[in-house]
Write a protein that binds this DNA or RNA. Structure first.
Length: 752
DNA sequence: CTTGCAATGACTGAT
DNA sequence: TCATTGCAAG
């Protein structure tokens, strides 16, 4: 067990305390994954059966890496039998074993976010509600948080607090939508992401034999990223651990960044109530980052009120200061960062994979992609629209899904007329109405329209029958042919492959290639199965909805610059990290300025971003950027000012323009942001000089991009862009004269 | 029922 | 800006 020698004393104790409830509070970069892996290795060394170990991670990737590390220490025959994965994938598997107990078919579909929202959109329409008020994303958010708190549709309706909230927000009928949604999912044999946890709770609640079985099977339970678990997950773990109480949770309250998904820091705090004789270990030594980075991060997180006291420190080198770069536009930001990477690569002999660019929102990636491409720096984008969410992939998966589970409503709607077979909206609507009236699935109606009294022409009926026959013929092969053969067969005989092949536009070609890529993925899956067994398409479909791009990193992606959101960067580390777009209303996001707790979560996100860096961390912001095609002006983020100045290096362009950094302005802004007051620009108060008030025409005008204005010489025009805060210069498009740059001091503009 | 174009809204974050 | 949705014409 010499691997234990590499641990410090806190780590070692956390590893060795295998019996009884254990909580590990692990600061950033303190070797949390290492403790988890070694703990499992240690358990196995001491003779624990790998079948008795359950390890829940935050991403599939983390699970995979941990497995690899364990098999490195212990050998992979044992490690293979550990149950390890995300909450969603582990319990999806368990649910499939017992699905009949809940009235679901074993190959129930997993609806992804798109499916859920599309179903919600149809329901809102069916209930004749305004989809501007009942926006699918919004309704989905309500339902999701209800499920994550184990509130059933009936409980939802009966909960006066919730109903009042909905009433006050002008959406009193969400409970009806929730009810209908639940029914439709059930009829379709489908579970959404939240159901995978919610139904697991139901399963354990209503079937004690099942609960009993898993309670005894999982003698040792480990949960990573415990600070980001929600109530539903918390309760699953609590139930499973109730018998042996050998539960080990690892987390860092300072890195809790998923409250929008229902994550609850309370879970960490509740731990001591649920397990009074628990032991807690704090890992405070950071092995990842330079002193400067650790201390800078500490100075930021200290601004948060809600936190568990701990002292993260490091014995690493001091390292270089955190550089702050100010640019005029988002494009310039991209160029400058790309140049920095180019130079660092040469000066420090660094590799592409040593660099990460982290941003708040996915939409920010573009300027960096362009700039990196110009310098021939290979990059890889994580997240965003994943492979499995692309239209063409979802289309073909629609066929696979319907083949495996004909009740799947969303799959059926997606493919019943793709490729075109003359079944239009009117027909589909009739089918949906009949299905609703009779409380059956769409498939049932399509299969026997006469039974449900649907008025259709003979031609349409014929087309529907052909469609049914085709899907049924696929279904026959489901457990006959191997996954690849059937997948290929469906791709061809559905006509999808032909349809895409016909499209010779660049997009069409790439769609075709994506299908090919999917098929070769299925081929690989088929060939990787154990000797003597056959991999069926239904097996492949099992967790396809839970896969993300990060799960299948390709060999050629190894040495590339990483671009991702900060959320996606959790748990990763890079020698050089660029945190970009540090602007008010972007980071912190303007949606987070309403309450202290939301702002604190943004701050934790910033903390996570900085602490990804090992050697060097660079921050950047642009004073103007495009948003929805409009140029908007922006100011530096309060978070930059929150870093202790000793750790910052301000580059020249930063100092030469814009407002200066000072901490008094910070106080004003924080004070303001917590009060209810006006929501728009909280920032200007502290440093808006009085002089602009009277002299600047723009002030009186309060110009905004998109306004229509009148100019005495050029006539009517539209504001395309503004520069400066408050605006001093505007670009206006005049139908008669084209784009004109105007100094607002001189141009006499009038808003029309 | 399909096609083509205009209109519209999305940008927090992700299993 | 971009992709999806809505609507009118064939």
């Amino acid at each position: 067990m010499n691997y234990l020698d590499s641990l410090n004393s806190a780590q070692l104790e956390a590893v060795k305390n295998t019996e009884g409830p254990t909580m590990v509070i692990a600061g950033a970069g303190s070797g949390k994954t290492r403790v988890l892996t070694y703990r499992i290795a240690y358990l196995l060394d001491k003779g624990a059966d790998p079948f008795n170990i359950l390890a829940l991670t935050f991403t599939n990737k983390a699970a995979k890496e941990m497995k690899a590390r364990i098999s490195h220490i212990i050998g992979d025959t044992d490690s293979r039998n550990i149950t390890m994965g995300t909450f969603h994938s582990v319990f999806a598997r368990i649910l499939r074993h017992h699905s009949e107990k809940l009235g679901y078919p074993p190959n129930f579909t997993i609806y992804d976010t798109q499916d859920s929202r599309s179903l919600l959109r149809t329901i809102v329409k069916e209930l004749k509600l305004d989809d501007k008020v009942y926006k699918p994303a919004m309704v989905h958010g309500r339902i999701s948080s209800a499920k994550n708190n184990l509130i059933s549709p009936v409980a939802y309706e009966g909960n006066s607090d919730i109903i009042n909230e909905d009433r006050q927000s002008g959406r009193p009928r969400i409970f009806e939508i929730y009810k209908a949604y639940e029914r439709r999912c059930f009829l379709a044999g489908a579970m959404d992401f939240d159901d995978l946890l919610y139904k697991t709770n139901i399963l354990f609640r209503d079937h004690h034999d099942v609960l009993h079985f898993y309670q005894h099977r999982f003698k040792y339970i480990l949960v990573d990223e415990y600070q980001d678990t929600n109530y539903s997950q918390y309760l699953i773990v609590k139930k499973l651990a109730a018998v042996f109480q050998n539960i080990c949770v690892v987390g860092d309250d300072a890195q809790s960044i998923y409250s929008f998904r229902g994550a609850n820091i309370q879970n960490i705090l509740n731990f001591k109530n649920d397990y009074p004789d628990y032991k807690v270990f704090k890992l405070e030594q950071n092995y990842r980052s330079s002193q400067t980075i650790v201390n800078a991060a500490n100075s930021v997180i200290a601004k948060n009120k809600d936190q568990i006291q701990k002292n993260v420190w490091t014995s690493n080198d001091i390292g270089s200061k955190i550089k702050v770069i100010r640019t005029l536009t988002d494009n310039e930001e991209g160029k400058l960062i790309a140049n920095q990477i180019y130079e660092l690569k040469q000066n420090d002999k660094a590799q592409n994979s040593d660099f990460a660019i982290l941003y708040r929102t996915n939409a920010q990636s573009r300027s960096f992609e362009e700039a990196l491409r110009k310098l021939n720096l290979p990059y890889k984008i994580y997240g965003g629209l994943s492979f499995y969410q692309r239209k063409e992939i979802k289309d073909i998966l629609g066929y696979y899904r319907l083949t495996a589970n004909p009740q799947d409503e969303e799959a059926l709607k997606r493919i019943i007329n793709y490729p075109k077979r003359g079944i239009g909206n009117t027909t589909i609507e009739k089918i949906v109405v009949a299905a609703n009236q009779n409380g059956v699935s769409l498939w049932d109606v399509v299969e026997s329209p006469h039974k449900y009294d649907v008025q259709l022409t003979a031609g349409t009926k014929n087309k529907l029958a052909q469609f049914i026959t085709q899907i049924k013929s696929f279904a026959v092969d489901l457990e006959q042919k191997d996954a690849y053969t059937l997948a290929q067969h469906i791709a061809v005989s559905s006509g999808i492959l032909k349809d895409l092949y016909a499209d010779k536009s660049p997009e069409g070609v790439s769609r075709y290639e994506n299908i090919q890529a999917l098929l070769s993925g299925i081929k690989e899956f088929t060939e990787n199965i154990q000797e003597g067994e056959t991999a069926f398409l239904s097996d492949f479909m099992v967790d396809v909805a839970l896969l993300t791009d990060a799960d299948q990193e390709k060999e050629e992606d190894k040495d590339k610059v990483s671009l991702m959101t900060i959320h996606a960067s959790k748990g990763l580390e890079f020698p050089y990290v660029f945190v970009v777009g540090l602007e008010e209303n972007l980071f912190p996001s303007q949606m987070a300025l309403n309450s202290r707790s939301e702002l604190e979560e943004e701050r934790r996100l910033f903390y996570v971003a900085i602490t990804r860096a090992e050697k060097k961390c660079t921050l950047s912001f642009a004073t103007s950027r495009y948003r929805w095609g409009n140029l908007i002006t922006s100011e530096s983020s309060r978070f930059i000012e929150e870093i202790d100045k000793d750790f910052l290096e301000l580059t020249n362009p930063y100092q030469s323009g814009g407002r200066s950094l000072n901490h008094s302005s910070l106080k004003n802004r924080v004070g303001q942001s917590t009060s209810p007051g006006p929501k728009r620009r909280l920032t200007k108060l502290s440093d808006a000089p009085v002089k602009t008030k009277s002299t600047n025409t723009a002030d009186k005008l309060d110009l905004k991009v998109g306004y229509n204005v009148m100019h005495e010489r050029f006539g009517k025009g539209k504001v395309v862009a503004l520069e400066g805060t408050p605006p001093t210069k505007a670009t206006v498009f005049f139908p008669k004269a084209g784009n004109k740059q105007l100094l607002l001091k001189f141009a006499k503009l009038e808003i029309v």
